[in-house]
Design a binder for these strands. Structure first.
Length: 418
RNA sequence: GGAGAGAUGUCCGAGUGGUCGAAGGAGACGGACUCGAAAUCCGUUGUACCGCUUGCGGUACCGAGGGUUCGAAUCCCUCUCUCUCCGCCA
């Protein structure tokens, strides 16, 4: 399903955590559409015979023939529609290939750590987690949000509001310097777009909120709205790459997710995120994947946070992803005495999404080819706030603002409340 | 939200049931004329998919989706968008 510009062979879908086949369905689908086309050709031929003046009995014979054809076409098209739906449904269960260098493995424990950057801070006192910090400094109110909206919602208050906005602008400015066009996207998208990007909006395990009475969902990420932007279009080769940087709210059902590792702001139903998205030529996608990762690293190292870069294993890749890198920032309040927690994720989806969304460009021979599509987190605000609060806490209960954010916040410390 | 008008190819624009993939014009490209250019004249010029294959054949596409009919750009229904007027609103 893809062409990789990399040594070695792409990992076959067999290495993924799913199995699927629609070969048998294809064997029915192709002949059906050819037969429907042949019948339509007969109908058009029949129609063409009736153009001039005709004897009455010749005309009525042709009309009778047309009626027969009409019935056959109706039957065939009904069958074709049924087969086509099944074909597409099965097709969506087939994941992308995986990059030859992606680590082979079954689940998230089989990742490869590519590098560690920065040193986790040490504290001469017992470090608090962001939930406690947020409460003591009156920055985050989970309890009221639970009463007003439900569990896993939160109010940001006071300096936390300014901190979030500062982070947004700090990250946006970096992406602007890298040539990304800024967007604020809709927070709702049609189901067909969700499915084209590779999300399943329906079903028990879906992480997506659907909207009653509409064929639309709340987006879980701006990847959906940025990736849907050019759905159905043929792009000019000279306009590639297209680099977008989109801010949106993100809504996730997170059914069943709870416990120590999901506490506080780490896993919530609603957060804001600045997402990077690139449409490019197939031969360039690997290079741009590394570029997105480099921007993510620049954003997080610029905040003075220690992090590691993870190369996700084949079994833990989402269906559209050919390769995925995560950045995990050190979070002192996580686990017993601090652990790494995911703050960004960037995927090269090659032509997987562009095939289902039909996003193409005209190559030098005038043939339409599918573009490659990549996405990555610039900054997920809620998780960045977790990392900043926990890493920059002081013994007196105050929080030091990372110097890179001070021009945006206008203050350098969140003072302890007495 | 209410009333009315509209949506046709790169653009403008004709087309109210079969001879329409679609007149005419503009633009673009090729050619003639010219030392060259302009003007003029002649010709070519939509997209996607499929099959043989460098040309031809087939199918689909006149805002989108459904319907009527042997046959739909054309008739009917629904929706979307644009314009005008009224109402409402950040």
């Amino acid at each position: 399903m893809t062409s990789a510009s990399s040594p070695g062979s792409p990992r076959k879908p067999a290495w993924r955590s799913v199995s699927a086949s629609c070969g048998s369905c294809e064997g029915i689908h192709m002949p059906s559409s050819a037969w429907a086309e042949a019948l339509r050709a007969s109908r058009n031929e029949n129609t063409a015979k009736m153009k001039g003046k005709l004897e009455a009995d010749v005309r009525s014979a042709l009309i009778e023939e047309g009626k027969t054809l009409k019935a056959q076409i109706a039957d065939t098209e009904e069958e074709l529609k049924r087969v086509e739906e099944e074909y597409l449904r099965l097709g969506r269960t087939i994941p992308n290939y995986a990059h030859p260098d992606a680590p082979l493995g079954k689940d998230e424990s089989d990742y490869t750590i590519l590098r560690h950057v920065g040193t986790p801070p040490t504290f001469s006192f017992k470090a608090k987690d962001h939930v406690q910090l947020g409460e003591e400094l009156d920055l985050i109110d989970f309890d009221t949000a639970t009463r007003v909206s439900g569990p896993k919602f939160y109010y940001l208050k006071r300096e936390a509001v300014l901190l979030q906005m500062a982070l947004e602008r700090y990250a946006l400015d970096i992406t602007l310097k890298k040539g990304f066009t800024p967007f604020i996207t809709p927070d709702i998208a049609r189901e067909e777009i969700l499915m084209g990007i590779g999300f399943n909006p329906r079903g028990e395990e879906s992480n997506i909120y659907t909207i009653e009475g509409m064929d639309a969902c709340l987006v879980g990420t701006a990847e959906i709205t940025l990736g849907g932007y050019y759905a159905g279009q043929v792009l000019d080769k000279k306009d590639l790459p297209i680099k977008m940087s989109g801010l949106s709210h993100c809504f996730r059902r997170e059914a069943g997710a709870s416990g120590q590792y999901s506490k506080g702001l780490y896993r919530v139903h609603q957060f804001s995120k600045l997402e990077l998205f690139i449409y490019c030529l197939p031969e360039d996608s690997e290079r741009y994947h590394n570029e997105i990762l480099a921007i993510e690293e620049e954003i997080f190292s610029g905040l003075g946070l220690a992090y590691r870069v993870v190369d996700t294993c084949t079994g833990d890749l989402g269906a559209p992803a050919y390769r995925k890198f995560d950045i995990e920032a050190w979070m002192p309040g996580r686990g017993e005495s601090g652990e790494y927690g995911e703050v960004t994720s960037t995927s090269n989806c090659t032509d997987y999404q562009s095939r289902s969304l039909s996003i193409r460009y005209k190559d030098d021979d005038g043939k339409n080819q599918h573009v490659h599509m990549l996405n990555g987190t610039a900054v997920a605000l809620s998780r960045a706030i977790v990392a900043i609060l926990e890493n920059n806490q002081n013994e007196d209960g105050s929080i030091t603002i990372p110097p890179a954010l001070v021009p945006y916040t206008g203050f350098d410390t969140i003072k302890a409340r007495s």
